[in-house]
Design a protein around this nucleic acid. Structure first.
Lengths: 333, 333
DNA sequence: GGAAGATGAAAAATCGTTTAATCACCGTAA
DNA sequence: TTACGGTGATTAAACGATTTTTCATCTTCC
């Protein structure tokens, strides 16, 4: 059994109020008793218990994290960053999976409230408007989502991806997405299209319509594939390699999110990474402001970072740059 | 503001005890008032608040999940399964990352206790002995870890992997691990070695010693690579393909854990999947037993499941089976 | 010397819920 | 009529902390 405040007080012959005052630094305590008490506290390793404190103060020090799909490979990085940022400010993270279902999402939020979460960080499932929640909330989704508070600048990311390839001489692109209904993917693709120079052309393929024949695309003059996720980039890359094409010799491939495998494949996958620590820190900060009901900042757009590895290179017949080809592991911002 | 028990009681002109009794079904309440109260409860959407209940009952309905590294790509599946299983039994999940550091791990456990967790599920970091925790705990690691409660049968998984390839005519293997100090990987490799038939031979390579030259290995007669993780299998596979080898034509590759990308690459990666729902359910069940201080079952070994995709096939010059080659998406247990 | 102020610490209220103890009432049996 | 058992509901205590209020003591100043 953990030591309780009352026990400490009794052993020392002081009141619980005094011990609590020492703990919080508030109230009036003589230097003498302060030393005495803090010594005892350290000795028995006392920590104030959550429920009692939560009941009295109305603050549990726990935040909810509601995700549409925990098994999404992007999640580990996000969850880790948020857990780290939260712990840094002394808060815990309660997770919930809405299984991409608006009803389950609402239910998850209710459970968070019931469990005493001080606020929630929510990556809303598609088509849900997160509003009028009965507790402070931060929405992480995409810039085009109403109510969004923090997210990567997906559009700028898409722009960077296309510009990177254009600088390498590529002019004919395939933009590869999974679902039209994903606002993140739409933003990324919009960014790519916005960066198209005169004389460049891009065709958009959606995996929800079926997997395109990459080998055929390559034969028809496409020299670069920009996928909205490393997962799709990997699909393209392995299919191209399987069909005998060289990456990046014949076709360059670039992805998004810098997933766990991206650095470990051959060729290393060039990708646009999300700055998860930054996003997490911003989310926690935003939530903290709400908890102190301070004035809220505008939605925060965190830039994406181009990570150049070996899956992108000069377009065929394009004069190669001075530095021959990027080495695996190079990181450019 | 959420409605409180006291408010409901006052509005109905009854005592809080009565409302609480209706909620729990205990105590003595007339059918009449029972209806009245439950109607009101439903009307205002009342749910008992966590902290108050936790304080009184000593149970928070929250479990801690402590992991050595959230960013591990295996984590999403585990976390999702545990969250689902916990929610099914009305419990929430508080996550923490020990960053593979024993000190941080102990600290994380302390925080869980402080936040009122009823018990914890812990995937211990290497070299730590989880024992004498001041609260119910379930350890998920490997069969050879002392104190382990639930885990996949990694050894049997390794055995299955090697047998699968042996049945396809392979005789010369490379067993590919990351770190000798990982008990999970050691168990898997031990299982592989235990299944070697007479005339078969296997060489073990550890990535911590550097990435081996897979192309050279293939040239020297290796026809199958068994990696202890899909991540390493992917490394091998892309390097082989990049060097012009055909998978599985020249070399078969098999991995572990059925990570998110494994089904989406070409060729689809044959792998041994962990039965996460089963593991999660067993962990939660084990914890529930501890909470009712019932007698505890022996450590539970959950079988791994062979998922046959396209990265494994008959050894070169081996008579092909009747069904030509496994199709992507096929699942065999 | 007595009032006012400062100081240190204790007493008590409070948060929301559960639960053991108590109570009022009614019908029934002695 | 009295005692008793059963029923339905209330009262009050308890959980572990924080915080406001109160109280006692000691200075200091007129």
């Amino acid at each position: 059994m953990q030591p309780k405040l009352k026990e400490i007080a009794k052993e020392l012959g002081v009141s619980t109020a005094t011990v609590s005052n020492v703990l919080s630094g508030k109230g009036r305590v003589s230097e003498e008793t302060r030393k005495l008490v803090s010594e005892k506290i350290r000795e028995v390793g006392y920590r104030p218990g959550g429920p009692g404190r939560a009941l009295r103060t109305g603050r549990s020090g726990v935040l909810g994290l509601v995700l549409p799909d925990i098994s999404n490979p992007l999640f580990p990085a996000l969850a880790q960053a948020i857990e780290t940022a939260a712990e840094r400010s002394g808060q815990g993270i309660l997770i919930a999976d809405s299984h991409a279902d608006p009803g389950a999402q609402a239910e998850a939020v209710q459970r968070m409230i019931q469990r005493g979460a001080d606020g929630i960080i929510i990556v809303p499932c598609r088509g849900t408007q997160v509003s009028d929640l009965p507790l402070p909330a931060v929405v992480i989704d995409s810039a085009s989502t109403p109510g969004n508070c923090v997210c990567s600048d997906h559009q700028q990311g898409g722009k960077q991806a296309l510009e990177h390839l254009q600088a390498l001489g590529h002019r004919t692109f395939v933009l590869l997405g999974q679902s039209r209904r994903s606002s993140v993917q739409s933003d990324r693709i919009a960014g790519m299209q916005s960066a198209l120079a005169a004389g460049s052309q891009a065709e958009t393929c959606w995996l929800e319509d079926g997997i395109p024949d990459f080998a055929d695309l390559a034969r028809r003059g496409v020299t670069a594939i920009i996928a909205t996720s490393d997962l799709h980039a990997l699909t393209a890359l392995t299919r191209l390699q399987g069909a005998g094409f060289s990456v990046p010799g014949d076709v360059s491939v670039i992805g998004f999110d810098d997933l766990s495998f991206s650095a470990r494949i051959t060729p290393g996958l060039t990708t646009l990474a999300q700055n998860m620590p930054e996003i997490a820190a911003a989310a926690i900060a935003h939530l903290s402001l709400q908890l102190e009901n301070a004035s809220l900042p505008a939605a925060r757009l965190v830039p994406m970072e181009l990570v150049v590895r070996s899956s992108t290179g000069p377009a065929p017949d394009f004069p190669s740059p001075k530095k021959p080809s990027p080495q695996q592991g190079d990181v450019t911002t």
